[in-house]
């Protein structure tokens, strides 16, 4: 459908691939994805921090009302995830929705986020899945 321009995919690749968050040098808080100013105190004095790859599931929703292109992995689980220094919303994969519990440990995994039609780009990024190894 041509929604993902090369430039847009390219610009955002680093934070999408590596869980790079913004961190405010003024108030110390982290936010993901990195913004132009701290969402908490408004400071533009920011640096970057790589977020932990393991966190906990605060809440989740099992979404059946998904777009057609995501039907192959529906229902899609959307989770609110606490990574300690920041929270984020992300897709939770590799689990039967019925097996998921609030409080579960989840780990970051590198996945396809979107595939743009038959000829467009493959967009990669981070999703999460329940930790079962180690």
């Amino acid at each position: 459908m041509g929604e993902w321009s090369s430039a847009r995919v390219w610009r955002s690749r680093v934070y999408r691939y590596r869980l790079i968050a913004g961190r405010c040098r003024s108030c110390g808080r982290a936010h993901y994805p990195p913004a132009n100013a701290c969402p908490y105190c408004g400071s533009r004095d920011l640096d970057e921090v790589e977020l932990p790859r393991v966190g906990r599931l605060i809440s989740y929703s099992v979404v059946y009302a998904t777009p057609f292109e995501d039907r192959d992995r529906s229902p899609v689980v959307i989770g609110l995830i606490d990574l300690g220094i920041a929270r984020l919303v992300a897709e939770v994969v590799d689990v039967k929705p019925g097996d998921l519990r609030v409080g579960d440990r989840v780990e970051a995994v590198f996945r396809r986020i979107a595939v743009d039609g038959n000829t467009g780009l493959i967009v990669y990024g981070i999703k999460f899945r329940p930790v079962r190894v180690g």
Partner: peptide
């Protein structure tokens, strides 16, 4: 591999 996995991921 799951539906959002490929050799790169």
């Amino acid at each position: 591999a799951g539906p959002d996995e490929d050799s790169t991921t």
